[in-house]
């Protein structure tokens, strides 16, 4: 199989998406702000009233890093599934791009890079809100921004794999509710993983990218809770590399006819 080279033209693919994002920035900026606000109020303070502290951490502080991690996941995953699918299938943007000196590989990497960037933007919007609630420690939590990029690249690449696979926009709902939604609950987000049977814990840490993202985010906002931080970071880096390669393969198979 012949792989076209990936050059700095990736930036132009990324730039096209960024340009469109800025055109509608007033709308684009709202979802992460409101999502995190509601999550914080409903879970942190609503539900939190009924929850004892978790391992010496009060519930709003426990849930805050999970809200960031979920924000990172949603920002990039939904961008490279529904967003990329609309560009690829309905708008034929990919077809227009590959008729220029841009290669298919550059289109794919550019889309994933944009997913990662969107995750960083969302993180940057969520952090001030959490800071206002006083539930994250600064300046350590600013490291969530580069973590947003890493997590965003991974979920962006995962999303693009499903985009390469899906026959229609409707079937894209399957990975969303069969994988993303359960993962959102089972990744140590709203309750700690060690309250689950140990086999489930092993499976979660072997397979669920969000579990690692949450555990790293928590290590950054609550420096006292960092048992597996290095393992999680390595897991995310390796997974990102592998899934990106896979997404290029799957997309080539779909687009090169």
């Amino acid at each position: 199989m012949m792989h076209g080279p990936v050059s700095r033209r990736v930036v132009h693919v990324w730039g096209r998406n960024f340009h469109v994002f800025l055109r509608t920035w007033q709308v684009s900026f709202l979802p992460p702000i409101f999502d995190s606000l509601f999550f914080m109020l409903a879970l942190g303070y609503g539900l939190g009233q009924f929850v004892q502290d978790i391992g010496g951490v009060d519930y709003p502080r426990f849930v805050a890093p999970a809200i960031v991690a979920i924000g990172i996941m949603n920002a990039s995953y939904y961008e490279t599934t529904y967003g990329s699918f609309v560009r690829m299938y309905y708008q034929k943007t990919f077809d227009a791009l590959i008729a220029t000196p841009v290669t298919i590989e550059e289109v794919i990497v550019g889309e994933i890079l944009w997913g990662g960037t969107k995750a960083v933007i969302y993180t940057a919007l969520i952090l001030p809100i959490l800071a206002l609630f006083g539930v994250i420690s600064l300046p350590g939590s600013l490291l969530l921004l580069p973590l947003g990029l890493l997590g965003g690249l991974l979920f962006g690449a995962i999303g693009l794999c499903f985009t390469a696979w899906t026959p229609s926009i409707d079937t894209l709902n399957y990975p969303s509710f069969l994988l993303i939604t359960p993962m959102m609950v089972l990744s140590g987000t709203f309750f700690p993983l060690d309250s689950l049977p140990s086999t489930v814990q092993y499976i979660a840490f072997a397979l669920l990218p969000l579990a690692h993202l949450v555990s790293l985010a928590r290590a950054l906002t609550l420096p006292s809770t960092a048992p597996f931080a290095f393992f999680s970071l390595s897991w995310l880096v390796v997974a990102t590399g592998l899934v990106m390669l896979l997404s290029v393969r799957l997309m080539r198979r779909r687009l090169v006819v």
Partner: peptide, 24 residues
Amino acid sequence: SQENNLDPDLSVYENLTVFARFFE
């Protein structure tokens, strides 16, 4: 190409200028 693949998210002018970037 036979199918319309203009960028509906962009204006007429931007369709040309954004496209120009792909040619450096």
